[in-house]
């Protein structure tokens, strides 16, 4: 697809996604996912309140050691807790919510008023296929993100700016992997494809529309830079204001993740539908 056409398709997908947001389409699955994350954060932040202590404290001690049970360490541990649990949440719960969101977006773009329960049930029917796709994305992202620290660890001390460049490049590669698989869930749920075929077709669609697909994934992801920057300042924030502010920052992060997912899957589903219709038309024409 020509560059101009790709950019045109990208802008159109985003405008459609914003239209869906205006009508609050497909919000519920992502709100549900965010709510689970917020609950997790609240459990850690409020572990010293009855009756949470009895079951949250042992879990915290198990994962992060005795230090996490002291004030204000539990607030500093929020990011670690989210980091440790999110891969599992993303795979096992995120698979369902992503699937439901894709179906609800598709219904909205098709002119229907999608029903959450039906979307959830349809998503659950292809649960393991979606789990596999999300697991591949999560594992690949985790491995790639670990490369700068394990391979170029010494560079961080020797040349900080070069290390930052390596990290930026790695994030770019992670985005590319995510872009290759971004249409896999729509192919499974809307296109009715099997796991292997969905992955193959998603990669093929991404490869033929690299600019649109990459920007659909990368531009919303840039939003995460804001809470990430705030989180880096956590010590300053805790000492200047109060450690409890760290909970607010983590909630902002969760909301940002929800927005990023909404924008990515909203635009990806729209573009997927557009591209596969074009494909069909092309097939007809052939």
């Amino acid at each position: 697809m020509a560059l101009l056409k790709q950019l045109n398709a990208l802008i159109w997908s985003w405008s459609e996604m914003l239209g869906a947001a205006k009508r609050r389409a497909a919000l519920l699955p992502l709100v549900l996912y965010g709510a689970v994350q917020v609950c997790l954060l609240l459990l850690v932040a409020g572990f010293a309140y009855r009756p949470l202590t009895s079951f949250v404290a042992p879990a915290l001690r198990w994962r992060l050691g005795e230090a996490a049970l002291h004030y204000p360490n539990n607030f500093f541990a929020l990011r670690t807790v989210l980091g440790q649990t999110d891969p599992f949440l993303a795979v096992f719960l995120g698979a369902l919510t992503t699937g439901a969101a894709v179906l609800l977006f598709a219904a909205h773009y098709g002119g229907d008023r999608g029903r959450f329960r039906a979307a959830w049930a349809a998503s659950a029917r292809r649960y393991w296929a979606i789990v596999a796709v999300v697991a591949i994305v999560v594992v690949a992202s985790q491995l790639l993100n670990a490369i700068p620290f394990s391979v170029f660890g010494e560079l961080a001390e020797e040349n900080a700016s070069r290390f930052r460049l390596v990290r930026a490049l790695t994030i770019g590669v992670v985005m590319a992997v995510q872009a290759l698989l971004v249409y896999a869930v729509p192919f499974i749920l809307i296109g009715g494809a099997g796991l292997g075929r969905a992955i193959g077709r998603s990669a093929s669609l991404a490869a033929t529309t690299p600019v649109t697909t990459y920007l659909i994934v990368a531009v919303p992801a840039a939003l995460e830079l804001i809470p990430a920057w705030l989180s880096k300042k956590s010590a300053t924030i805790a000492y200047t204001f109060a450690p409890e502010f760290l909970l607010v920052i983590m909630i902002i992060w969760v909301v940002t993740i929800a927005l990023v997912n909404y924008a990515t899957f909203g635009a990806a589903t729209r573009f997927f539908m557009h591209a596969t219709q074009d494909d069909a038309a092309a097939g007809v024409r052939r």
């Binding site: 010293a48 309140y49 009855r50 202590t53 009895s54 404290a57 049970l69 002291h70 004030y71 204000p72």
Partner: peptide, 12 residues
């Protein structure tokens, strides 16, 4: 749990 809560409150 009571002691953990107590310690946390004192530390706060």
């Amino acid at each position: 749990a009571d002691e953990i809560r107590g310690r946390y409150a004192a530390e706060k």
